[in-house]
Design a binder for these strands. Structure first.
Lengths: 350, 350
DNA sequence: TTGTAAGCGTTATCAG
DNA sequence: CTGATAACGCTTACAA
């Protein structure tokens, strides 16, 4: 009401530079009362609060977060570092990581935190001093275990740093990860139940991708449990996943090793193997069953669609945030394993 | 050297609370000299700068960004708002948006900006006052045009707000988007060159997805150019994309309308249509060609793999950032259209 | 219940 | 080239 819309001199042109002092004047109270009223301090009387709120609305006031944070010493922000493979086309980044980023942001926001995201791919831009610079109260690092220089960098940060990570190459890191063993066991049992018995695992127990080892272990445990010997068909290093799957399937077929099912430690490998098997004339799922791990979208579109183990992304993000907040509060333990579920599609027989 | 690693009293336990005053004392200069030396001010003599840098390193000093920003009045940060469909499972968010997020972060970082990301899905959490709160100097909003409440909200922000968006429902917004028309024309021409002539477009000219209209227009222009009448097979609203494609293909086949190719306005629609065509016994690509739009990963895995128009994600992110920075600087025009390329796979004949 | 006043840790202005 | 000395806008004791 004070300054009408057509008052040319009063209309603020630039994004508001209104301070709590202006609001105080407008409301006829002191500046500290404004701060308290807006912060929801219970000692402020309701009429006063209303007056302040109205004045703030009229002036279009918003607190300057930098000043507030400087004073408080806390930021209300969590940093998320996404580690990409150096020089990698972002489009080729496993979409899984993007989903995880999304659910992490959501979980942080549910706990009242904002998220500062940075993508880092190589030594020139590794950076983890968010707390020291008061940019964030803690840090979540998400990446593939293959970017060794990155993990070397983050492994050597100040040990008092509050952080958690996804994709850690070893257990010396404050990790959270998928229930790889459980998932692999689930996959193997599913195949056993469907009548496959000569199940070969395409994967690796020595890959820097620690999860591959865990998945192999889960598969092996389920096999032994059922009285079968686990068999590993190794992937060749340094190739695209799909190609690794293709070659492994070809090698397996050529080896004479009898098999009626394949458990691949990742969907991309599984998809490659699937393509190769079909090219070689195998009938999937009747003659050979195939199960992957990761729940990538493309699996729904292959022929036949890929049966897979799908990690729960929503839970994973929540777990990361919960663990970080617990660490920040000095409470040590919260769950570190994110659950998985079996998605049955057409690459295993009914 | 001053405090050795084994000096128990000197070792800071918590994340450093060192200020520029401490560094000043350590280096034997004034506090303002420290600030200047570290900021790279040219008026500082080289010996002094070195002394300061060494002292800062010794004390593990990092500037408090909140104080710096408060003083400067600039944040060096761009906000990115990701608009999701309300209640949507984050995993189902079009991976395209994640790629765009990634390339936007990369572009921002290349221009010296940080990125503050927030995911917003409904009225309870729509929020765009980053500038007023001094959390960011500008804002990029990325979303599907279908979340109408979101666009209503962002459309009514202070007109002085510095922002750009991807997915705007109409031209009243400061938009950047894919070269939809050009891409669709590219698709249609590709099919014409490969000998298809009765090309039907599966899509819509009235969808809130403005891009669908643009894609139809591009297709129609290319058809008319070649002396053919464009034909539109409409999708039904409110269904999952794949289902829309399926039904449209079924309806087309049932209609008696002669056709030897389909241009679908999105890959998911194309994949649905492809599946339906094959189920109906059509031979793809010999009898019927299919081209989609978006370049989703799943398209590489369908049978046959889907020929498509792939937007350039890297460029798109750069465009968004460039446009925003230009707007912030008051320079009005930069390109708004992000380029596309044709990816030929198996769903069109050689 | 509200007001007064002291910082939070920088950057920037002004002298010297 | 360097040193004092104001701000920046808020939160939070401490008083009243």
């Amino acid at each position: 009401m004070v300054a009408g819309t057509e008052s040319p001199a009063a209309a603020p042109k630039r994004i508001t530079r209104v301070t709590s002092f202006d609001v105080a004047e407008e409301a006829g109270v002191s500046q500290s009362t404004v701060s308290r009223a807006l912060a929801g301090d219970t000692s402020i009387s309701e009429p006063t609060r209303q007056r302040v709120i109205a004045a703030a609305a009229r002036l279009n006031y918003q607190v300057n977060e930098n000043a507030a944070r400087l004073r408080r010493g806390k930021t209300g922000t969590l940093a998320v570092v996404m580690i990409c493979r150096a020089g990698e086309d972002r489009k080729d980044l496993n979409p899984f990581y993007y989903s995880l980023l999304g659910s992490t942001c959501a979980a942080a926001s549910a706990r009242g935190y904002e998220v500062l995201v940075s993508f880092q791919d190589s030594a020139e831009n590794f950076w983890g001093h968010f707390e020291e610079r008061r940019k964030a109260d803690g840090m979540i690092v998400i990446g593939t275990s293959e970017n060794t220089p990155a993990w070397d960098y983050f492994g050597e940060l100040d040990p008092d740093t509050n952080w958690v990570c996804w994709g850690a190459p070893n257990d010396g890191f404050p990790w959270v990860r998928t229930d790889n063993e459980g998932g692999a066991t689930l996959a193997a049992r599913h195949m056993l139940v469907r009548g496959y018995t000569r199940i070969v695992c395409i994967g690796s127990e020595t890959s820097p991708q620690r999860q591959f080892k865990e998945r192999y272990d889960g598969y092996a445990a389920a096999m032994r449990d059922a009285g079968h010997e686990p068999v590993l068909q190794r992937i060749e290093r340094g190739l695209p996943r799909e190609e690794q799957g293709r070659r492994a399937a070809a090698a397996l077929a050529a080896s004479g090793q009898p098999f009626d099912a394949i458990f691949a430690v990742s969907d991309e490998i599984a998809l490659g193997a699937l393509k190769e098997l079909i090219a070689l004339g195998y009938k999937v799922p009747d003659q050979v069953g195939v199960v992957g791990f990761d729940g990538v979208r493309a699996g729904a579109w292959s022929t036949p669609p890929l049966t897979t183990i799908e990690p729960d992304f929503e839970v994973a993000g929540t777990l990361l945030v919960e663990r970080l907040l617990a660490a920040m509060a000095g409470e040590p333990e919260t769950p570190r394993r994110s659950p998985v579920r079996l998605v049955v599609r057409g690459s295993t027989r009914p």
